[in-house]
Design a protein around this nucleic acid. Structure first.
Lengths: 219, 219
DNA sequence: GTCTATAGCGAGATAGAC
DNA sequence: GTCTATCTCGCTATAGAC
């Protein structure tokens, strides 16, 4: 059942990352101790340093594993169309908010990124990748509907990701204030509000601004 | 110029809170040291403990000062009507996102609240007060327009505060992805999308649900 | 690769003079 | 109330046996 020694090493590696997730989330990066991480993983302190050269490298490795998973989940949510993606993203939001550690790790990552320029750049790149996935979903849905929006697709993606982040934040703090489906309902209402250019009088005649292209770009 | 000894004490007290804001924001709660806070404030370590019984109490005192200021600003933004409040809240958002320390302190407060039950309750209460101010603004605007919304006023307030939080988060990480006026534009579009019940056919005839009251409540 | 033991340092908090 | 000096403890990281 226990495989080769290489498999045992890999298992220890994963156990350490799991333990690190728990301890970093519960104590915060600065207050977390390598000793507690080792104890949680069921190994000694020496073993930790055989796998990771420092506490910092362990934290970064954990964050990279987390980013990879997050991106994969976002892509999977997009695979089906908009109709299915919205509740899927909503579920992911609930999972993060109601998890014991995910939201805390997100905040720790963000703070660490602000303090460490190199990691900050990686974190921004990760967010850009997730953002692009959401934007692609918006673009597809806009084109399917054949309408124009009063915002760029990039801006809609930014609003959607920011709203999700904020709702996770508040639901973790005060669960009863954020209903399960609030994210999805808000997104749908927002698109609705962005669609119609004016009062229901003029069917299709935007003011004399640029050409009728209001698509993919950030800012 | 230097006033009484009581005034000097009060000045040291404020200097310590300012220094604590800087150091806690830059290092994080766990990694911040009382020695650095003392040095930043220009006093000795002993003086810090003459004003605050522990590092933790100093942090909590800082957070309370911060909450008081935040609430006052929110109330001031509401004082004028909706039209003026939206850009005012937008400005507050930009100030927090572009400040050197405000957003970090918010994240530290949130994390600390999750780890310390007592403080978490205070933080949730603070958020509820801010939330209530926003909800009152929404209620007033809805009644002024004489319309109904596809969401409770409480939910709109939750979405607005969550969106603001998320936009601060992402603007601090990647400033170029969050345009200055995105919050205000989104809020207006959202209300627009929440207003009209159906297609522009039926002027005023909601389905056969409850009485026409869709006002203040959270969930 | 994993362990035990420890070096070496910095942290929070206190004592006592002024 | 503010200072200097210090106590005491826990931390990161390493050394060396197995």
């Amino acid at each position: 059942m226990s495989g080769s020694r290489a498999a045992a090493k890999a298992r220890t590696h994963e156990n350490l990352l799991d333990a690190a997730a728990t301890v970093f989330a519960e104590r915060g990066y600065g207050a977390a101790s390598v000793e507690e991480i080792a104890r949680t993983a069921g190994v000694s302190v020496g073993s930790v340093y055989a796998h990771f050269t420092s506490k910092e490298k362990l934290f970064v490795a954990l964050m990279e594993r987390r980013s990879a998973g997050e991106f994969a989940t976002a892509q999977a949510a997009l695979a089906d169309g908009f109709e299915a993606a919205v509740p899927a993203l909503n579920r992911q939001l609930l999972a993060e908010a109601d998890s014991a550690h995910l939201a805390e790790l997100g905040a720790e990552a963000w703070l660490y990124g602000l303090r460490s320029p190199g990691f900050g750049a990686e974190l921004a790149a990760h967010h850009r990748r997730v953002h692009d996935v959401v934007v692609e979903m918006v673009t597809r849905e806009r084109e399917r509907r054949g309408t124009t929006l009063a915002m760029t697709d990039g801006e809609v993606g930014t609003v959607a990701t920011a709203l999700a982040r904020g709702l996770v934040h508040y639901r973790r703090m005060s669960p009863e204030t954020v209903p399960d489906d609030l994210f999805g309902r808000t997104l749908i209402a927002l698109l609705r509000g962005l669609e119609a250019p004016g009062p229901p009088a003029a069917p299709a005649s935007p003011p004399a601004s640029g050409p009728g292209d209001r698509a993919s770009d950030d800012a």
